[in-house]
Amino acid sequence: MSELEELYQEVIIDHSKSPRNFHALKEANRHAEGYNPLCGDHFKVALRVEGDVIQEIGFEGTGCAISKASASMMTGSVKGKTVTEAKALFEEFRNLFAGESIQKANVERLGKLAAFAGVREYPVRVKCATLAWHTLKAGLEGEGQTVSTELPSTEWEAG
């Protein structure tokens, strides 16, 4: 596979064209917004958290194929998980882009989400892949927060 094909894997193209859970959530009790002012990406993530479990999650907004597919696949991965599990999965996802090489255990724990490994070769696109995740984390930590890739308050990946 060429590096471009590594980046734009079939599953990513599929999720970008037909995003899952791509809707507002009426019964949501957590909301957050994420921006990448440099490229205009903008997502809203809404959650219904009961006890410690993410019962429902939906997202809306616009963005590139990478950011949209990542948001779509993220919603599928965290639904039904506890808040702690979801945050741990985000850490796992971020590790995909960190370090010298990809760890096998990391890939196994990520499952389908490992499709984003190709983004490693495109440092400026790491922000695209993690935008929805940062937004999710903000929503889990406090109601109504806004995160931006260009604000120093969030720990954004190099790019």
Partner: peptide, 29 residues
């Protein structure tokens, strides 16, 4: 159906350098 950011990345890999984004003119976008 293709975001300009994705166009920019794919063109870059072909050696073609263009700009993708709001070009510092958000009201015009």
């Amino acid at each position: 159906e293709v975001h300009p950011h994705d166009i920019g990345t794919i063109l870059d890999r072909q050696g073609v350098a263009i700009r993708a984004g709001h070009h510092c003119a958000m009201p015009l976008m």
